[in-house]
């Protein structure tokens, strides 16, 4: 008996070999999808919302940043300053990337489009904002549920000059944030 998984000893037709290799490589697709969904994924960042931290040259070139996203238990252990990827509460087909400003129980002084001056972030929710000026964030649609978060950005991979770990814990706290008031 030929060794299991090998192409066999006797010569096959071209079509037979082609199908054999196609099926062999296709069996690696489910593990790949599982890893991409539950462990880690590569993400291109679109748009200016995290300027200047991500996509600093968004108005000069079409180059996008490539980031590594960690996806294990994405709704747990969230900290202020983390950069997270979440499904948009306005349109579930799209994802957005923003920075966590406040966690549940915090009180935030909001920015213009929001109708009230202060907001208490409810249980199980986070307040997310983009670093840049041109951003549609929690000031627009309010605090988001932590379950919408699908991953957190841990590394910048491309471009090379800014590649490295994302030091979210060194990000200064936003003025107008009162931690754990209620």
């Amino acid at each position: 008996m030929a060794r299991w998984g090998s192409a066999g000893t006797q010569a096959r037709s071209f079509l037979g070999q082609f199908t054999h290799h196609l099926i062999r490589y296709a069996t690696w697709l489910p593990p790949l999808i599982c890893v991409k969904e539950y462990v880690a994924d590569l993400t291109f960042i679109n748009g200016p919302s995290m300027y200047p931290f991500l996509n600093p040259h968004y108005n000069e070139s079409l180059r996008r940043d490539l980031c590594l996203t960690y996806k294990r238990y994405s709704w747990k252990n969230l900290k202020r300053g983390m950069i997270v990827i979440f499904r948009s509460p306005e349109n579930p087909k799209t994802t957005q990337v923003k920075r966590i400003v406040a966690l549940e129980g915090d009180r935030v002084r909001t920015r213009p489009p929001y109708p009230y001056e202060y907001v208490n972030v409810p249980e199980g929710h986070v307040w997310v904002e983009g670093d840049g000026e041109n951003t549609k964030d929690s000031n627009y649609y309010g605090p988001i549920s932590a379950h919408l978060i699908t991953g957190r950005i841990t590394h910048i991979l491309l471009p090379w000059d800014r590649a490295g770990r994302v030091r979210w814990w060194e990000h200064p706290e936003r003025p107008g944030l009162h931690k754990g008031l209620f």
Binding site: W75, K76, E104, P122, E123, G124, H125, S145, A146, H147
Partner: peptide
């Protein structure tokens, strides 16, 4: 659906 105000799954 996932209950939006709960911290567990």
């Amino acid at each position: 659906y996932n209950i939006p105000v709960n911290n567990n799954n």
